[in-house]
């Protein structure tokens, strides 16, 4: 009996390691190409394409990105601030909403859920939203406009609601209520403590969305000192695309320093880097058994 169980566990583990290793290699491969390209001189990339190991080594791409270091650092700062503030605020609102929406004794929870969900189905399109943001709320060139639209998504709220529902047993609410705790206190003292994996997940997604966002910068930011990092990257790439599509008849030439292939790749690495360092800190919440520990502790 015991031996058989061991055998099954062994088989399972072999499958687990093989599959994850395989998936890892697949995910890593293109990334290595990009890293390698970022260290290859532009001319070599254009002539020979990508290689896993640069056939000629050069820091040209990175030098180009850091031509004006303060610009890149500035972009890091803006992205950092929006990510941290947005994630913190967003998490606060989302966890509160998630908590209320899963309370069985909250009568209108389904209507509110629908109210939230409905916005994923219908939208008025870009123009009215843009008009509202720029003309009525006057949010052009503000940090608010970089943070506000990303604070929450219906998906994250509903996800949070489900995480809380599965992490916090119904009895906990009842006993807390009997102890005389009000609804906010229950949320603050108990729910937040118990649903850490969920909060970590939602927080990670929020942070990623802020970190990866370029669209808000593109629409609402004219002041170059407020460009976000991803927009900086996108803009480099898009300038090239623009030039490749503009026929000679337009007479457009962009002067001396068109960004190059290696610059694009260097920029991609620079943008991704910090998240990779941060990710392991979030990860500890995904280790099994932690929830139990939290309850006991």
């Amino acid at each position: 009996m015991k031996i058989k169980d061991e055998k099954y566990a062994m088989t399972f583990r072999i499958i687990a390691y093989t599959v994850t290793l395989f998936a890892t290699v697949l995910c890593l491969f293109p990334f290595l190409l990009i890293i390698s390209a970022s260290f290859t001189p532009n001319e070599v990339i254009i002539r020979e394409g990508f290689h896993l190991i640069p056939s000629k080594f050069s820091l040209e791409g990175y030098k180009m990105v850091f031509r004006f270091p303060e610009t890149v650092l500035r972009a890091y700062w803006v992205t950092g601030v929006t990510t941290v503030v947005g994630t913190a605020l967003g998490l606060f609102f989302i966890t509160m909403a998630g908590y209320v929406l899963q309370r069985k004794d909250f009568k209108y929870r389904n209507y509110f859920s629908f109210f939230i969900y409905f916005t994923t189905l219908f939208g008025g399109g870009l123009v009215p939203w843009y008009i509202l943001m720029t003309r009525y709320l006057n949010l052009m060139d503000t940090y608010t406009v970089l943070i506000f639209p990303g604070l929450m998504t219906p998906f994250l709220i509903i996800l949070m609601k489900n995480f809380i529902r599965s992490a916090v047993p119904e009895e906990v609410f009842e006993s807390a209520k009997i102890d005389g705790a009000n609804d906010f206190k229950i949320y603050y003292r108990i729910v937040l403590q118990l649903s850490m994996p969920g909060i970590a997940t939602v927080g990670l997604f929020l942070a990623l969305a802020y970190w990866n966002d370029w669209f808000l910068s593109s629409l609402f930011i004219n002041d170059q000192n407020m460009y976000q990092l991803q927009f900086y990257l996108y803009n480099i790439i898009n300038s090239i695309q623009f030039i490749s599509q503009m026929g000679a008849g337009t007479g457009i030439s962009l002067g001396t320093d068109l960004p190059t292939e290696s610059t694009k790749m260097a920029m991609a690495i620079i943008v991704t880097g910090p998240i990779l360092f941060l990710y392991p800190f979030v990860q500890r919440y995904f280790v099994k058994g932690l929830t139990i520990g939290a309850v006991k502790g």
């Binding site: 123009v127 720029t134 593109s218 898009n238």
Partner: peptide, 20 residues
């Protein structure tokens, strides 16, 4: 103000049609 080349055609549309 500069539109940047990112989606410039969309933004050009937006600037004029939004009445900004």
């Amino acid at each position: 103000n500069y539109t940047s080349w990112t989606d410039w055609d969309q933004k050009y549309k937006l600037l004029l049609s939004s009445g900004q």
